[in-house]
C-alpha cells in the first residue's frame, strides 16, 4: 500500500497567487483605483460643462465688442482677466497662468520629495515637502482671491433690459452670462479646490511624520509616495480644468 501522496505542483504563474502581478504595493494600487474613480467624477463635471456650453447660444460677434449677457455663453478670457493689485486692467488669463505655474511647480517639488524618500534622505524629504506645502497653500490662496473676485464682480456689472445692473455671481444670478456658467464654475473649481485642500492637509501630516522620523523608522517613505500620487492627480485635473474652462 502506497502511503505517498502526490503533492500538487505549486502554481507559479503570474495570476496564480503568491506573487504580486502588478508589482505594486496594496496601498499604491488602492490609491491608483481611487484616483481612477475620482477621474470619472471630474470627467463627468467637465463633460457636463461641454454639454451645457453646446446647448447654449455661443457668442458670434467680434471679441473686441464682447458684452456680458445672459443670452450667450461668455468668452472665458473676458471673464477671468483680473489680477490682484491691477484693478481695472484687462489682463486676460494672467492670474490663471500664475496659478497653473504654481501648481506645476508644487508637483515638481512633490516628485523630488518622493525621490528623496527612495534614497532614505530624511532632510531632503522634509525640504521638498515643505516647498510643496508652500506652493499648495499659495495656490489655495490664489483660488480664494479668484472666487472672491468672481462673486463680488466687476465695477460695470451687467446691464439688464430694465436699466438695472447686477454685479458678480452666485447660484441664481450671474453678471458674466447664463447662471449655469457660474454654477459650473463653483462646482468644478470648488471640487478641485476641495481636493487641493485635502491634499494639503495630507502633506502637512506627512511633513510632521517625516520630522518625527515615523517613515524612517518604518524603513520606507511609501506614504509620501501615495500622497504624491494624489497630489499629481490634483495637478493633472487642473491641467484639464485649465484647458476646458479657461482656454476653450
Amino acid at each position: 500500500m502506497s502511503t505517498s501522496t502526490t503533492l500538487e505542483e505549486p502554481k507559479t504563474g503570474t495570476w496564480d497567487g503568491g506573487n504580486e502581478p502588478l508589482k505594486a504595493s496594496y496601498g499604491k494600487l488602492m490609491m491608483w483605483f481611487f484616483l481612477l474613480s475620482d477621474a470619472f467624477t471630474f470627467a463627468a463635471f467637465l463633460i457636463v460643462y461641454g454639454l451645457s456650453r453646446h446647448s447654449h447660444l455661443p457668442y458670434t460677434g467680434s471679441p473686441e465688442e464682447f458684452q456680458f449677457s445672459t443670452e450667450w455663453w461668455p468668452i472665458p478670457e473676458k471673464v477671468f482677466n483680473a489680477f490682484p493689485g491691477f484693478h481695472g486692467v484687462d489682463l486676460p488669463l494672467a492670474f490663471v497662468a500664475l496659478m497653473t505655474m504654481i501648481l506645476i511647480l508644487s508637483s515638481v517639488t512633490m516628485v523630488l520629495a518622493v525621490e528623496a524618500g527612495h534614497r532614505m534622505d530624511k532632510n531632503d524629504v522634509q525640504k521638498w515637502l515643505l516647498w510643496t506645502i508652500l506652493f499648495g497653500g499659495t495656490f489655495l490662496g490664489c483660488q480664494a482671491w479668484e472666487w472672491t473676485h468672481f462673486i463680488v464682480g466687476t465695477e460695470e456689472g451687467m446691464l439688464l433690459a430694465d436699466g438695472t445692473r447686477i454685479f458678480g455671481a452666485n447660484m441664481t444670478m450671474n453678471q458674466y452670462g447664463p447662471p449655469l456658467f457660474a454654477n459650473l464654475f463653483f462646482f468644478i473649481t470648488g471640487f478641485h479646490g476641495f481636493h487641493v485642500t485635502v491634499g494639503w492637509i495630507l502633506l502637512v501630516i506627512a511633513f510632521i511624520s517625516t520630522v518625527n522620523g515615523v517613515y524612517h523608522k518604518r524603513g520606507h517613505y511609501e506614504m509620501v509616495e501615495k500622497i504624491g500620487l494624489y497630489w499629481h492627480f490634483v495637478d493633472l485635473v487642473w491641467v484639464f480644468v485649465f484647458t476646458f474652462f479657461y482656454l476653450i
Partner: peptide, 9 residues
C-alpha cells in the same frame, strides 16, 4: 453628451 448638447440647442 456634447453632441447631445448641440442637438438640444
Amino acid at each position: 453628451l456634447i453632441s447631445e448638447g448641440s442637438y438640444y440647442f
